[in-house]
Amino acid sequence: MKFQLSPEQRQFSASLHDFLAGAETAAVARAWAAGEHDRGLKLWRGLAELGVPALLADPGLDASLVDVVVACEALGYHAVPGPVIETIAVAPSLLTDRLSSLAAGDLLVTVVAPPEVPLALDADVAGVVLDLTGAELTEASSSPVPSIDPARRLFQVAASASAPSRAFDQGVLAVAAQLLGAGQWLLDASVAYAKQRSQYGREIGSYQAIKHLLADVATQLELARPLLYGAAVADSTFTRDVSAAKVMAGDAAYLAARTAMQVHGAIGYTAEHDLGLRLTKVRALAGAWGTGSFHRARVLR
C-alpha cells in the first residue's frame, strides 16, 4: 500500500512545528515539572486555536487517527508537557458530554487504566480523571509519584483493572507517535552537534564511526514510521498494529537517546541542556501505555 500525507496534513504539521518552535517549550516543560502550570496551559490554549484537541472531539472536522499521529509526533518532537495523549487521543472515545469544552481547549482530561496505566498523568491539573469505561474517578493522591521524567507528574487514583479497548489502543498509538517525534528531535540535535563539535582538528561528524551511529538511528526511525502510520489506517488489525508501532517507535527512540548521549558527550548530562528533556521523556514513554514486553506479547497473540 502506498501512503502519503495529504497536503492539508503536511500543512497542519508545519503549522504545529512553527508554533511550537517559537513557544519555548523547553522552558514550559521545566516549569511544568516544578508544578507551575500557567505557561503550559497558555501553550495548550494556543494548540487549541490550531485545532489539536478538537481532532477527535469535534465531528465537524472530519479528522482521522492519521491527523492525531501528525499532531502527537510534533508534540513529542517539542517535548510538550501535560496529558496530551489522554486529552487528544483517548478522552474523545470515553466522554459522553463536555466534548465541546475539550475541543475548545478548556478541558484537560487524564486517564488511568490499570494494570498498564496504573497512575494518572497530571491529575492535579486535569479537569476530569477517567477509567476506560468512561467513569469519572475522584480519589486521587495529593502528591505526585516520582517519575524518571520530571515533567510527567503521576498521581495514584483508586481504579479497578480495565481490559484494553479501542480507546486504550488509541492511547498506545499516540504514545508511539510521541516517541517517534522525540527520537527525531534527538537525531536532528545529534546531527547538528556533530557538525559543530571539533576533535583533533576535525568536526566529529566527519568521522565514519559517528556517521554510522547516526545512520543507524535514521534507519530505525524510518522503519518505525510506516508501522505508525499503517496502524493509524488499520481496521481489523488495529490492536496488533498499534502494538507493533509502539515496540518499533520505542526501540528507535531509545536508540536515538543512547546515540545522542554518545555524540554529545558530557554536555548531554547537564540539566541545562535540552537533550535531557528528551532523554527522560523517551525513557518514561517507553513503558507508558504498556511495556515493550506487553506489546510484543499482543503482537505474538
Rank of each mutant, 00 (worst) to 15 (best):
A257K: 14
P118N: 11
V175E: 00
G276P: 01
K195R: 13
R30M: 12
G265K: 12
V129S: 01
V172T: 15
A23D: 00
A103H: 04
L16G: 13
A120V: 01
K42N: 12
E49L: 10
G60I: 01
W44M: 06
L50W: 05
D149Q: 06
A218E: 13
L221G: 03
M1K: 14
E139R: 08
Q199S: 11
V242W: 08
R283C: 03
A286P: 00
V68W: 02
R301S: 12
T25S: 07
Q11N: 12
S142C: 05
S142T: 00
Y269C: 09
A151G: 10
L121P: 05
A89S: 07
G171M: 01
G46E: 04
A189M: 11
T259N: 05
S15V: 00
T280Y: 00
L223W: 02
Y200D: 14
H78S: 14
W185N: 09
L213R: 06
D67C: 08
A177K: 11
T239M: 04
I148S: 07
K42A: 15
A174M: 03
G292S: 10
Q156H: 14
R298M: 13
E116V: 08
I85Q: 02
L75V: 03
T25H: 01
R30P: 09
G127K: 03
S100Y: 04
P92Y: 07
S64E: 08
R30E: 10
V172N: 07
G46Y: 01
G292N: 12
A71N: 03
E49C: 10
E49N: 12
S190R: 02
Q178F: 02
D18I: 02
G268H: 05
G183R: 08
A123Y: 03
Q170G: 11
G181C: 03
C72G: 06
R45F: 09
Q11V: 08
A120T: 03
L173P: 07
A63V: 04
S243T: 07
R98N: 03
M261A: 13
P164C: 09
A167L: 06
A120H: 00
L99R: 13
L180D: 01
L132R: 11
R98F: 03
A33L: 06
V263Y: 04
A215Q: 13
P114T: 10
P53R: 05
A174G: 08
S198C: 09
L119C: 06
A71E: 01
T25A: 08
V129T: 12
V117T: 00
Y200W: 15
S101K: 04
